[in-house]
């Protein structure tokens, strides 16, 4: 437990020692601003909620989370520090947990720093802040799933670019599996059961209610499960293939 904390602390500090965290947070804030106010018709809708803000989060995470996670294991492999790390008296589980917690904390920080949007909203109208808090929670949960996938991809290769592209690819599959295009494609020939299964893996579907501030148990469990499964996959990769 303590060991995990030490690793998480180091990783967290590393995000800020290199400009990664600053760049990430800046881009996250700028893009979420653009999406909310320009693309999402925040004002024109004339409603006191943050739906346009949260609706774009899956698409933001799709590119930004792989960017923040691509370094996590690839860099350890490239620079050889993985040998140092894995010969310290720690388990691979502790290393993975530490890295995950650190990156997830950066994501939380980025989310918290969007507070001006919330302040604006409260200035303009009288939103239900409970709903907004629930949506924030849901968004953070979903970012954990993106993160677990991206870190597993990073564990596969010492090349950050490849890790980044692989992560986007897999995340993209999870995001779009519920979208109209994919479902239409399946509809023509697949049995309804298959269709439901494909749709049930979709981040969009599970986040839909969350963005509106409804934290349903099955959506929460879904994201937790996806996160756990991909963390476990990453663990297997690291344990099977420590060198190069």
């Amino acid at each position: 437990m303590k060991t995990t904390f030490f690793i998480a602390r180091r990783e967290f500090a590393a995000f800020f020692a290199t400009p990664i965290a600053y760049v990430f947070i800046a881009i996250f804030l700028i893009l979420s601003g653009i999406f909310t106010f320009f693309v999402g018709d925040f004002y024109e809708r004339g409603q006191a909620d943050l739906l346009p803000f949260f609706n774009y989060h899956p698409w933001l995470y799709l590119f930004l989370v792989p960017a923040i996670a691509m370094r996590s294991w690839s860099e350890e492999r490239r620079s050889g520090t993985i040998e140092l790390l894995m010969t310290l008296p720690i388990t691979a589980t502790q290393a993975i947990a530490g890295k995950f917690i650190a990156a997830w904390a950066v994501l939380l920080l980025a989310l918290l720093l969007t507070f001006p949007v919330w302040v604006t909203l409260n200035y303009l109208g009288q939103p239900d802040n409970g709903i907004i808090l629930a949506a924030y929670t849901g968004s953070w949960l979903m970012s954990g799933a993106f993160l677990a996938i991206s870190m597993c991809m990073s564990a596969l290769t010492k090349n950050q670019v490849i890790a980044f592209i692989l992560a986007i690819l897999v995340c993209f599959l999870f995001v779009v599996s519920g979208s109209g295009i994919v479902l239409n494609a399946f509809e023509k020939w697949a049995a309804p059961g298959v269709l439901d299964t494909v749709a049930s893996f979709s981040f969009l579907t599970h986040f839909e209610a969350m963005a509106a501030g409804v934290l349903a148990l099955n959506d929460i469990l879904f994201f937790l499960l996806v996160t756990a499964v991909w963390l476990y996959a990453g663990l297997t990769v690291i344990e099977q293939k420590k060198a190069v």
Partner: peptide, 25 residues
């Protein structure tokens, strides 16, 4: 000491040694 003495490049020497001591309990 692994070959090539790998270390976390962005850390200072002091931070790095501190980290190792911490992780070593």
């Amino acid at each position: 000491l692994p070959e090539g003495a790998p270390a976390y490049e962005e850390m200072t020497v002091y931070q790095f040694l501190h980290f190792i001591a911490d992780v070593r309990g």
